[in-house]
Amino acid sequence: MTIAVVDYGVGNLFSIKNALERIGARPTLITEPESLTAFEGVVVPGVGSFGGCMRQLSRFEGVLRRALDEGTPILGICVGMQVLFDGSEESPEEGLGWISGDVIRLPDSVLVPQMGWNTLSIKKETEILEGISDEDFFYFVHSYACVPEDRSVLAATTEYGLEIAAAVSRDNLFAVQFHPEKSGVEGLNILENFVRFARC
């Protein structure tokens, strides 16, 4: 089972690689766009700022778009979820725009970043949330939150100052604001769901 992890030069991919290995997948770190071919699934991680990620990720935009159109399951994580949207209050760079909507700053009424474990409110059935319940906690670290225009993409939300998109899905495109690779057993379950879906 080969899963590509897009290594576009931001942050440490050690955790996501370790977590995928733990659930029996064979992750490959992809550093060049031309290497992103014939994978059963693609993980787009992301840490740091929206603009920083987009600047580095832009050279992968074409191959990722092709993978998406060909039906390859794609999973965005944290800023890797935010870049799927049109743009962010954090940076002037444009996002990939695969999901309509913007990324906004968390409100001043709460400590920013949201850092820690929060529960989900599941909005629809989707492959990656199979077996996950509203009582399970996931590890969030973020200062900005995605606001999809079309709420039908919302798979789960979490409450932090306002209702935040925690997971979105549309066909073969999935994304989570939290870090499944840092969310204990339940996080590993989500990665396992993704890998299982990618295998079908």
Binding site: F14, S15, N18, A19, R22, Y139, V141, H179, E181, K182, S183, G184, V185, G187, L188
Partner: peptide, 8 residues
């Protein structure tokens, strides 16, 4: 540690 521990 990181091989076995899936929290921050």
């Amino acid at each position: 540690t990181a091989k076995n521990v899936f929290i921050p």
